[in-house]
Design a protein around this nucleic acid. Structure first.
Length: 311
RNA sequence: GGGCAAGUAGCGAAUCGGCAAACGCGACGGACUGUAAAUCCGUUCUCUUCGGAGGUAAUGGGCUCGACACCCAUCUUGCCCA
């Protein structure tokens, strides 16, 4: 059986993915699946730079704007939903185009990484999180060393989230997560995909980020966050860990002034863009599209992407 | 023109006569397989064969066994007075 064709269009935040994706979808008859851990949430429009219905210009978008901000989300959920969307789009004879900056989510789809081995009961994780606070992560890291020395070696003891996940995995499956990861790394993709990573000069990227944050403030990010707060969304919600929201909460809670909040959003977003680039650099099979090589001409970039897609 | 204060890494600084540059920020590099816009790590004066080696406190002089620190002069910056 022929593998399902799939296009991935990603890159660091503010590089210009959304706009290009619309043009691409229209050219090849595609529908867009968002791979964005924050745009899944409703009412979070300004801070996530969510595409507006007008800008979608008739191109169907999936996995955007469907979850309450009080709800948790994770790769596993994403992966389940993506598979449904891909089938759905394919059944209509359209091409699924995955667009978004969450590299981990993209990886989970492309290589169909298996997350199903554990159930969804997170009481043990909660317990570990509490212990990390009271006893210190170091103790947990020591425990990990005993059951899964390979992971303990690979995971820094300060990295509480990953230490906890490794312990949780071991508890639930009786196997070290390092072994699982090694297996998953060997997987071949069930898709015939083209993995495009859009990039640009770092300075250009950074100034685009700054500009975008200023625009978000103008458009009323503060009011948006206040509204979410009024809805009863706690600062600690997964959704509120998103860039812009977290910093705004700090401001609204009186920890610093608005200027400081804006500075922090810009800075943290720049750091984020850097982390995204690091991720994509490590991924195999990516096709880099450096905007500088195309004089930043959307038309030229689009043509190149379509050319590679049709090969 | 006079008075006062300050000058240390890209920036903010620590060093209170005894191994200068701790710490923070920024910048850069990296890890990541169920929170990923999360979480975490490393480098950041110069050279390096990655073991180390060398250099630096605005500038010039002085006191001292020893000066970033104390004294004098000069320059620069800020504030106050004319």
């Amino acid at each position: 059986m022929e593998k399902q064709k799939l296009i991935v269009l990603t890159g660091p935040t503010a590089v210009g993915k959304s706009k290009l994706s619309i043009a691409l979808a229209k050219t090849i008859g595609g529908e867009i699946i968002s791979a964005d851990s924050m745009q899944v949430y409703k009412y979070m429009n300004i801070g996530t730079d969510k595409i507006s219905p007008e800008k979608m210009d008739g191109v169907p978008h999936h996995l955007i704007d469907f979850l309450e901000p009080s709800e948790d989300f994770n790769v596993f959920e994403f992966q389940k939903l993506v598979k449904e969307s891909i089938e759905d789009i394919a059944s209509r004879g359209h091409v699924p185009i995955i667009v978004g900056g969450t590299g981990f989510y993209i990886q989970a789809v492309l290589y169909d990484i298996d997350f199903t081995e554990t159930d969804e009961d997170d009481s043990y994780r909660k317990e570990l999180e509490k212990r990390a606070l009271t006893e210190g992560v170091h103790v947990l890291h020591e425990e990990l060393k005993a059951v899964d020395p390979e992971s303990a070696e690979a995971i820094h003891e300060n990295n509480s989230k990953r230490v906890i996940r490794a312990l949780e995995y071991y508890k639930k499956t009786g196997r070290p997560i390092s072994e699982h990861n090694r297996e998953q790394r060997e997987r071949t993709s069930p898709y015939d995909f083209r993995y495009f990573v859009l990039t640009d000069d770092r300075e250009v990227l950074y100034s685009r980020i700054d500009k975008r944050v200023d625009l978000m403030i103008e458009e009323g990010l503060e009011a948006e966050v206040k509204e979410l707060s009024k809805l009863g969304i706690p600062r600690t919600a997964t959704s509120m860990q998103g860039l812009g929201y977290r910093e705004m909460f700090g401001y609204l809670d009186g920890e610093y002034d608005l200027d400081r909040a804006i500075y922090l959003i810009k800075r943290n977003t720049r750091h984020f863009a850097k982390r995204q680039l690091t991720w994509f650099k490590r991924e195999e099979d990516v096709i880099w599209i450096d905007k500088r090589d195309f004089d930043r001409d959307e038309e030229k970039i689009l043509k190149e992407i379509v050319r590679i897609y049709e090969q």
